[in-house]
């Protein structure tokens, strides 16, 4: 039950895009049509599901203060948490590289359709942000952390597909010249954010 709670909460209330603005760059750049947006959304969700539990275990058994006691009791006062960032980003970068190679080998058509966006996931702040928020929320098991990762990813996917759909429609509208392209996209995102805020304050179970 608690997992379901975290899942729903991370999709709607703590939405990566509308509540924290993470992964904004690719969100704005890749949302011109629904198909590529969907592909990128799936790739981001997948990366979150894979990297968050790995980073969780890394944080719990290597980085935190006293986390190394399982190796030997003499290491009880070792605190490696300042290395957190560099470890997380290394996991994410190598994970991206592995996923890229796997996708290229097993599904060349998906690889071709994702193209440049696959390697760019390494610098998508939604994924590093997910790892950092996971650390902050201190979940009690790797499973809960995975659920959080999946929820955040799906929330991101929903947001980018929604924006792409609106942008496909808005191509036919008469927008003031200086606002065309980026400007109007910012405003749409802002309005979508206000809409998503109606989920705030919802208490689950």
């Amino acid at each position: 039950m608690e997992e379901l709670n975290i899942f729903i909460k991370s999709i709607f209330i703590d939405n990566m895009i509308f509540a924290y603005f993470l992964g904004m760059c690719s969100f704005l750049a890749v949302s011109k049509n629904v198909k590529t947006a969907l592909g990128l959304g799936i790739a981001v969700t997948f990366m979150l599901v894979v990297t968050i539990p790995i980073n969780y275990l890394l944080d719990k058994y290597v980085l935190q203060a006293g986390a190394l006691t399982w190796l030997s009791p003499t290491l009880a006062d070792v605190d490696l948490s300042f290395l957190g960032l560099i470890m997380f980003i290394a996991v994410i970068a190598s994970g991206t590289q592995l996923v890229e190679m796997a996708v290229e080998k097993f599904s060349p058509s998906l690889y071709a359709s994702l193209g440049i966006f696959l390697p760019l996931i390494a610098v998508n702040c939604a994924i590093l942000g997910g790892a950092l928020f996971m650390q902050q929320k201190s979940f009690d098991s790797a499973w809960t952390a995975t659920v959080y990762g999946a929820g955040s990813g799906i929330g991101w996917l929903l947001a980018i597909v929604g924006l792409a759909a609106i942008r496909e429609k808005i191509a036919y509208s008469n927008i003031p010249a200086p606002l065309r392209g980026v400007g109007i996209t910012f405003i749409i995102t802002g309005l979508m954010g206000i809409a998503f805020m109606s989920f705030m304050g919802i208490k689950l179970g």
């Binding site: 603005f21 200086p178 400007g183 910012f186 995102t189 802002g190 309005l191 954010g193």
Partner: peptide, 19 residues
């Protein structure tokens, strides 16, 4: 103070600059 207004503020700056 809410996040969406930041987006709209940036959009206004873009508007002024591109005009």
């Amino acid at each position: 103070i809410l996040p969406p207004m930041a987006l709209i503020t940036v959009a206004c700056i873009i508007w002024v600059q591109r005009a």
